[in-house]
Nucleic acid binder design. Structure first.
Lengths: 195, 195
DNA sequence: CGTCTATTTGAATGTACTCAAAAGCGGTGG
DNA sequence: CCACCGCTTTTGAGTACATTCAAATAGACG
């Protein structure tokens, strides 16, 4: 076993058999991205499903005015791709970029087909994984509705305390749905509150 | 076949075999809700997965201040439950309510276990369905980030023109992430623009 | 050291909010 | 049939929060 973090991911929801895991692992391709390098850019058709073995990835989308909106920030131990493009073959609308040197494990489409056919439990694993991502995303929407920008900020840095050291503040601001200037002012307020 | 809309749903992503569908259909329980009746209330453990055969359901959550936030509005031909509670057995945080007389088809947990075991393709169907809901939800977040309240309103009534006749405006406002007063003002503006 | 980019700060603006009241609408009972 | 009630929607006035525009400061890197 080369990638215990990946094995852990497969075991997260169900008792995934080791032998089958090892075959799957052997079929993945390792890829390293440098700081600021893109894994996925808008317009591409995505033929692989990436797992973050070590690093930090940001998923953003550009709107009609050319403005960037960060939708997901994910780190080691998580999958982060464009499921829609991966399964439909249509061009992606997303951009996924590394903000530190990041090591990815890539599963291509043929491998996905092979393992779900050969090991039916894989289908269940992905169903549960996607379901969990879906539930998280509903929670995210609820937070957007019910919390102020300041409360969302406090919640975010509580869950990932090192975030502001790891990626530019303007990306964190975008993820929170505010402008960098507003994030700066919120941080100033929070700072002075805790004095 | 009693419920063509359900069959259509099973065929949406894959070529789901009829015989297997018919067995699944026979295991569902039909339930009718009256206007304003709840299907799911916060705190319950959810033992069924509901499919909306005919009607309109609203999924909302109450925040710490006691305020309601509508997260989903779904109509005929869609599943709408709490996947998290259904699969984990934990109490739900959601409230799902009918706003018209609504006919539901309910799959209980044992049936889910039975059909995924007996017909492995079911697992794939649900994986694809949840995946599609997940992709929609990411789109929803992007709209929240990139569109003004007025643009979100226009997009919503374009996709469901009868929505404001079907459910109270304050629920639509909540779904849009604004107050009923603001929705009223937006509607007045849009009205006067088109004169 | 200089340049480029990111972050902070200030001032004015805008959008949605709160509070408060009025108008509209649907159902019930006199 | 009309009066009344409760609930929803609209409107008005003042406020709060995040935005824009613009400039200053701070940091990173060659």
């Amino acid at each position: 076993m080369e990638y215990p973090l990946l094995y852990q991911a497969f075991k997260k929801y169900i008792d995934f058999p080791v032998e089958e895991y090892l075959d799957i692992e052997s079929r993945l391709v390792c890829k390293t991205l440098n700081k600021k390098e893109h894994l996925i850019e808008e317009g591409q058709a995505i033929h692989f499903l990436p797992f973050i073995n070590d690093g930090l990835m940001v998923n953003y989308r550009i709107d009609d005015n050319g403005d960037r909106h960060v939708l997901q920030i994910r780190s080691s131990g998580m999958w982060l791709g464009d499921l829609y493009s991966f399964f439909s073959g249509n061009p992606t609308k997303f951009n996924i970029q590394a903000y530190r040197t990041t090591e990815l494990l890539m599963m291509n489409h043929e491998t996905f087909e092979y393992i779900t056919k050969e090991y039916p439990i894989t289908e269940k694993y992905f169903r549960l994984g996607i379901q969990s991502a879906y539930v998280e995303t509903l929670e995210h929407i609820f937070n957007f509705h019910s919390l102020s920008a300041e409360a969302r900020y406090l919640q975010l840095i509580e869950s990932i305390p090192s975030l502001l050291e790891d990626i530019p503040h303007y990306l964190v601001a975008s993820y929170l749905g505010i402008k960098p200037q507003s994030l700066s002012r919120i941080r100033r307020n929070v700072q002075s509150m805790s004095d």
